[in-house]
Amino acid sequence: MAGSAMELINLNKKIGSKKIIKDLDLEIHKGEVFGFLGPNGAGKTTTIRMMVGLMGITDGDVRILGKSVKSDFKGAIREVGAIVENPEMYPFMTGMQNLKHFARMSPGVTKERINQVISLVGLENAIKTKVGRYSLGMRQRLGIAQALLHSPSVLILDEPTNGLDPAGIREIRKYIRRLADEDNVAVIISSHLLSEIELMCDRIGVIKNGELIGIQSVHEQQTDEDPERQIRLEVDPVENALKVLKAHHGIEAGEKGGFISFTAKKSLMPGIVTTLVSEDILVYRVEVSSASLEDKFFDLIGENVIG
């Protein structure tokens, strides 16, 4: 990935005297899939609306390929394709008729480009069928095709897998990854589905109370060669194991469903297990895992309600 596709520069939004969005600074790269997460009312939708010019910016700016949404709106927005909520299509027209209709709104969209986006989202076999007969997943794919007609550099998708079954979610994920990897499009996704964000995205930005509180790589390479992991042990007796961990290793472990759990560096585990066994504690199972995106998300927002 090289170069900046979109920049949010000290972005602010006031409604009346209330500051809804506070000093957002964010850079999204070409060819990456960026997940935008946050609790209910955090400011995700407001930020997306400012990105695409549907809501005015109080202070700061959004730049798309260096073009300002405030001072060069037409030039900036030409680089953006977006689907907010469900894509609106004409159900009495075929997929092809819908695409040709939308193509007329963007100068320079050729017949070849229409066929290219149809192929990209895998709708060749259904493109001559009326959209009213499409499944929800097919309509989402047609919506993505429509948003891509004018070859945007940035694609913004609000809940792209909302209402889809697992097969539909997998399809949309595949097309989004292909866009980023093969066409170098920057894709920004707002979603509630943390498991999907983890599979689809390269980085996530977390917003809370209108402030960007963290940006993380989803599959970050560990700079620490021995990071702390989540450990689960099946042991007997549990009560003795908890006491031994506290006394010998200073570990405060929790107990649930016959397992004890705690965080520790992986390199310490052989010594911990040896201590438990030497104290006549039976160790039946050891599970070592890294933190999931869900764990990271809740660590950042400090609460258990997402939206």
Rank of each mutant, 00 (worst) to 15 (best):
L199K: 14
E220Q: 14
L24N: 01
S217L: 13
V288S: 12
L155P: 08
L245K: 11
V244T: 12
S151Q: 09
R229S: 12
S17M: 04
K30R: 15
E88H: 01
L24S: 03
G258F: 03
K19C: 07
V62C: 10
A5K: 10
D299L: 01
L179T: 07
R113K: 08
G31F: 14
V121P: 01
I64P: 02
L37F: 10
K30L: 15
P91L: 07
V206G: 06
M269W: 05
I20T: 01
G163F: 01
L212D: 11
M200Y: 06
E239F: 13
N115Q: 04
A241L: 02
E79L: 14
I64V: 09
D280H: 14
D224L: 07
S290W: 03
M51Q: 05
S106L: 03
F298H: 15
T45G: 07
F259M: 14
P227D: 12
L179D: 06
L136F: 06
T275M: 02
L282F: 11
G214K: 00
L136V: 00
L155Q: 03
I156E: 02
I231Y: 00
L120H: 04
F34V: 05
S290H: 13
P152Y: 00
L300M: 10
G302S: 03
I301M: 03
Y284C: 03
R63G: 03
V305W: 02
F73K: 05
F102R: 11
A147G: 04
G66A: 09
R141H: 05
P39C: 01
E287V: 13
L157R: 06
F34K: 05
T58K: 10
I57C: 10
K111V: 11
I301G: 03
G254R: 09
A264I: 08
E198I: 03
Q97V: 06
K67Y: 02
V288G: 13
A147E: 00
I83G: 06
E287L: 14
A264W: 00
N304I: 12
L24V: 15
A180K: 01
N162A: 11
E85T: 11
L233H: 03
A2P: 00
V244I: 14
V305D: 10
L194K: 02
E196L: 07
N125D: 15
D295I: 11
H29K: 15
A145W: 02
L24M: 14
L149F: 02
T94E: 11
S217H: 13
E27G: 00
E27H: 09
D202L: 08
I77P: 03
E85P: 07
L11M: 10
G41D: 04
D25W: 09
I281E: 06
P152G: 12
T223C: 14
V238H: 01
